[in-house]
Design a protein around this nucleic acid. Structure first.
Lengths: 209, 209
DNA sequence: AATTAATTGTTATTTAATAAACAAAGGTAG
DNA sequence: CTACCTTTGTTTATTAAATAACAATTAATT
């Protein structure tokens, strides 16, 4: 089961909905309308209802969606019941930002190791994540049952790191380096480049007002 | 002129093409085929040719595109001839990563100030970017002619920071905080959430192999 | 009790993005 | 010199995403 056929963008939005629903819940809010969710995320209420329809949840007319129930269901869809372990390759500024950022955010998604080649970083830890030398990558990925890796190394190292991860039989890669990498089809790859995002903002901001 | 009507995704790809074309150029490569560009970026040659068509460049049959010329033309399209100045709000790990990352990457796009509220950071500088207190934000954005801001503050501060930026008449915002913010229509807003990206990779990696 | 307003769930339409198809041109090989 | 191969540029088709339209239902109001 656990149909894996949700649209890309719906998966992204469900993750975002959950984040803010958890805050609503923490604030004691029990129900929420589609247009309230929509307002938070700058989208239309229809889109929200459509996403929620796709995961098979049903709200209550005139009361909206039960926050706790919706959070629980999104969890069933997005999370792996047995949890998933994550490694960060590259413990520079970005890598450390990610460690601090993610730690203890999700019960089912844990950063359990970082890798770097600089001797001054190896053996230290950030936000409770220990830094290992890169030549232990394969072994530790196996030992700690890591299925997902985040690449946050400089341009020149990205391709090598990706090759190591493929060898280590990783299942998903999130590449934050500016260098696109190639991986086989059976690995899910997501690439994001901050310079590109900034240049895009610059382009569209250029002709504003 | 400089038609501002390029598709969103084309703008992103042009930025990525340029990055890698600059490296090709540095390696002495004079011409490049659409399928070579495509391979680097995991897309089809047709898409590359289509993007290049949209900016009105024409390659040479059987030789491909002249690297230097193409880089120059992408620059004409993406860059503002007078340059654009950028501020980073939030000098934590992520903010510092961004400062180191961007500095001196693009002639026409400069990070010229950072803002933070922690007294231990104010007055210091990273990668040549000085950190100012947030209450000077409006003044310095004006003085330094800053038109673009990157938000890299924690969840709770994001909404306030966005409001300040709107007041300071910023033209484009890149929001890396996990909190979606609201800005008027005349400001270009791009939001990116690392937790969502990781959860997306986790979701699609879950059912792999 | 009937009417109205609010809100969900679903289908249909439109728009945006990607991919496919193919003509045109120029070089290469026989 | 002719035929063929490669590669570009552009049109057409397909797919994915977002939006609009609307039926159904419940609560509140008169």
């Amino acid at each position: 089961m656990a149909m894996n056929t949700l649209p890309d963008k719906t998966v992204e939005r469900l993750s975002q909905y959950r984040r803010n629903l958890l805050i609503c819940d923490a604030n004691g809010k029990e129900h929420i309308f589609s247009h309230e969710i929509a307002n938070i995320h700058h989208i239309t209420p229809v889109q929200v209802r459509r996403d929620i329809m796709l995961i098979g949840y049903t709200g209550t007319l005139r009361k909206g969606y039960n926050v706790k129930e919706l959070v629980a269901l999104i969890g069933e869809i997005l999370d792996n019941p047995d949890g998933q372990n994550v490694a960060i390759v590259g413990a520079g500024n970005l890598g450390r930002a990610l460690m601090k950022y993610f730690t203890n955010r999700r019960e089912k998604l844990s950063i359990v190791a970082a890798f770097d080649n600089h001797t001054d970083k190896i053996g230290t830890s950030f936000a409770g994540v220990e830094v290992y030398p890169i030549d232990q990558l394969k072994q530790i990925i196996k030992d700690k049952n890591i299925s997902i890796a985040i690449i946050s190394v400089p341009f020149d190292e990205a391709v090598n790191v990706a090759a190591l991860l493929v060898e280590a039989k990783i299942k998903g890669i999130l590449n934050y380096s500016p260098r696109p990498v190639n991986v086989p089809e059976n690995i899910y790859l997501e690439e994001y480049d901050m310079v590109t995002s900034l240049e895009k903002v610059a382009y569209f901001a250029k002709n504003k007002k």
